[in-house]
C-alpha cells in the first residue's frame, strides 16, 4: 500500500551551510494493507521526520514515497491524498486549537471532504464514531480541549481519521503523553481498526508498545535502518548490536537490568561507516559499507558482524 524508497532528508548545517546533516538517510520500507508496522527509534533517529514526509508536511530531499503505486509528490490535489492518508501527532493537547471547541476537528473534515453531507447527518456520524472508539458523545462533544484528558483527546483524533475513512494512518508517538492506565485503550482501539483493514505506521520510542501492537518492526538509528522484520523475530532474536542494547535497556517488571556496559558517547559518524559504529562494542574498521542481509524469512539486518547463526563475530 505504501512504499518508501531511498528516502532522505538532509539539512544544511555548519558554517555557510556547506555541510549536510542527514536526518533521514536512504531509508526504504513498505507497509502492506491491514498491517501495523512500528518504526522504533530514539530521539534524533529521524522517525518523526519520516512520518511528516509521508504526511507531506516536510519535503524529502531524496528518494520517493509511493502510495497505491503513485509517487505522492506528483499528486497535485492534496485533499485527494489526505482523504486516504491521515496522521495523529504526539501531543494531543497541542493538536487542538485551544480557542475552539473540540467538535471543530470533525466539522473541518465535513467542510473540506464531505460538503454535500448535511450538518444533521454529519453530527449523527460523529456521534457514531465517537461511540465506536469507546467514548460517550454526550460527555465529550461541545467541550473545549482543556476540559478533556489527553487520552480522550487522542482517541478523538483517531475518531477523526475514521470519519475521513482513511486507509493509512501515521501514528507518531501517540501514547507517549498518556498515563499508563489509559494508554493501553488507545492501542487497543488502533488494533481493532487494523483488523478492519487500516494500515498503520506506528512511530514510537517505546519498544514494549511496538511489540504489543505491531506486525513488523523497523529499528532506526540516526536516520538509518539497522534491522527490520517480523516483530516477534526481531524481538526474540535481535541481531544488530543496537537492537540488543535497546532491548537490554528497556525496563520491565520481569527482569532486572544486567550491569552491562552502555556507551553513551556518540561521536560524529564517518561517512560510509555504520552509524552505530562509535557506540558499538564490536565496532572496528570493517564496519563499512553495510548493506541489508537476509538472516531468515522476513528478518533483515545491516551489520557486518552478524553470522548466519545470528551470532556476532568479534
Amino acid at each position: 500500500m505504501l512504499e518508501v524508497v531511498n528516502l532522505s532528508k538532509a539539512y544544511n548545517v555548519g558554517p555557510l551551510g556547506k555541510e549536510k546533516f542527514y536526518a533521514v538517510d536512504n531509508v526504504s520500507f513498505h507497509v502492506a494493507d491491514g498491517e501495523i508496522v512500528s518504526l522504533i527509534g530514539e530521539s534524533g533517529s529521524g522517525k518523526t521526520t519520516i512520518g511528516k514526509m509521508i504526511l507531506r508536511l516536510i519535503k524529502p530531499t531524496g528518494g520517493k514515497i509511493i502510495f497505491n503505486s503513485v509517487d505522492i509528490q506528483s499528486i497535485k490535489n492534496r485533499k485527494e491524498y489526505y482523504r486516504l492518508v491521515q496522521g495523529i501527532f504526539q501531543d494531543p493537547f497541542s493538536s487542538y486549537n485551544p480557542i475552539f471547541k473540540i467538535d471543530r476537528i470533525f466539522e473541518m473534515i465535513r467542510e473540506e471532504f464531505y460538503p454535500a453531507i448535511t450538518k444533521e447527518e454529519w453530527s449523527k456520524r460523529v456521534k457514531k464514531v465517537v461511540e465506536d472508539i469507546g467514548l460517550n458523545p454526550s460527555e465529550i462533544l461541545g467541550k473545549f480541549p482543556h476540559q478533556l484528558s489527553g487520552g480522550q483527546l487522542q482517541r478523538l483524533l483517531i475518531a477523526r481519521a475514521l470519519l475521513i475513512d482513511a486507509k493509512f494512518l501515521v501514528a507518531d508517538e501517540i501514547i507517549s503523553m498518556l498515563d499508563a492506565s489509559t494508554r493501553i485503550d488507545v492501542l487497543n482501539t488502533l488494533i481493532k481498526l487494523k483488523e478492519k483493514g487500516l494500515s498503520v505506521l506506528f512511530i514510537t520510542h517505546d519498544l514494549s508498545l511496538g511489540y504489543y501492537t505491531s506486525d513488523r518492526t523497523i529499528i532506526l538509528y540516526r536516520g538509518s535502518i539497522m534491522e527490520y522484520g517480523d516483530t516477534v523475530k526481531v524481538f526474540k532474536k535481535p541481531l544488530h548490536p543496537y537492537t540488543k542494547m535497546l532491548l537490554e535497556s528497556v525496563p520491565t517488571t520481569q527482569k532486572v537490568w544486567s550491569n552491562s556496559y552502555i556507551s553513551l558517547h556518540g561521536r560524529n559518524v564517518l561517512p560510509s561507516f555504520c552509524k552505530f559504529y562509535d557506540r558499538c562494542p564490536l565496532g572496528d574498521s570493517t564496519c563499512k559499507n553495510v548493506s541489508f542481509e537476509k538472516f531468515e524469512e522476513s528478518h533483515f539486518v545491516a551489520c557486518v558482524k552478524v553470522t548466519g547463526e545470528g551470532e556476532h563475530v568479534a
Binding site: A180, S181, L187, N188, S208, Y211, Y212, L247, T252, Q254
Partner: peptide
C-alpha cells in the same frame, strides 16, 4: 500493573 505493556506481551 496489569495495564502495562511490556516487551513479552503481544495483543
Amino acid at each position: 500493573l496489569t495495564s502495562l505493556p511490556e516487551v513479552g506481551v503481544r495483543y
